[in-house]
């Protein structure tokens, strides 16, 4: 039969409403002024409609970010849902932009909208992809860095869903440590 998208066909609701943010680096403007809310969605269908109409991460200019966060949480450390939290960080080699970045970012998005972290999904605030010349990064942000059971569960699921080799180690960094670091390295609070 022919697929009908007419009246009476209900969309599949997500557990959360999500907001997609875009950051474009302009050194002449304040960091906050470079951050733009693109749109919000709360169904499977609207997620794909959005995903199908925006640039792939690998096509963004260096210095740009996408951030997908639960509605009501801004993608910055200062937000009350983020400030005691941290992030699982996956750093990619330069050559992985073409081979892996889009697949890994989509997998990250599917983890979020599908609520892949079971009873710990409520701890998830959002995810960020940073497109950078020196190497792209993908991170999942959680709300409480001291919640070890939740953080480590989320990290294990995230690593598994990305299909990373068991030999690869990813680290979780508290935003408080990242914000106060004196050099470019932030200590890992947990690793998986």
């Amino acid at each position: 039969g022919k697929l009908s998208l007419g009246e009476g066909l209900e969309k599949h609701p997500l557990e959360n409403r999500w907001a997609l943010w875009f950051f474009k680096n302009d050194r002449n403007r304040a960091w906050r002024d470079n951050l733009h809310l693109l749109t919000k969605f709360d169904t499977v269908e609207d997620f794909w409609a959005l995903y199908s109409h925006i640039q792939l991460a690998s096509k963004l200019s260096s210095g740009c970010d996408y951030a997908l966060f639960k509605d009501g949480i801004e993608p910055m450390w200062e937000d009350c849902r983020n400030k005691h939290g941290g992030r699982w960080l996956v750093s990619l080699a330069k050559q992985q932009r073409q081979s892996n970045l889009d697949r890994l970012w989509l997998e990250t998005l599917l983890c979020l909208v599908g609520e892949a972290f079971e009873e710990y999904s409520e701890e998830v605030c959002g995810a960020v992809v940073n497109v950078r010349t020196k190497g792209d990064k993908i991170a999942i942000w959680t709300s409480e860095a001291e919640n070890q059971p939740a953080v480590t569960f989320i990290g294990r699921v995230f690593k598994d869903r990305l299909g990373l080799s068991p030999k690869v180690v990813i680290g979780y960094q508290a935003h408080a440590d990242t914000a106060t670091k004196s050099n470019s390295f932030t200590k890992n609070k947990f690793v998986v």
Partner: peptide, 20 residues
Amino acid sequence: EKKRYDREFLLGFQFIFASL
């Protein structure tokens, strides 16, 4: 009940969108 969707279910909708 929490609304959870596995990756295969979600990806199935991508292909529907791609074919429209």
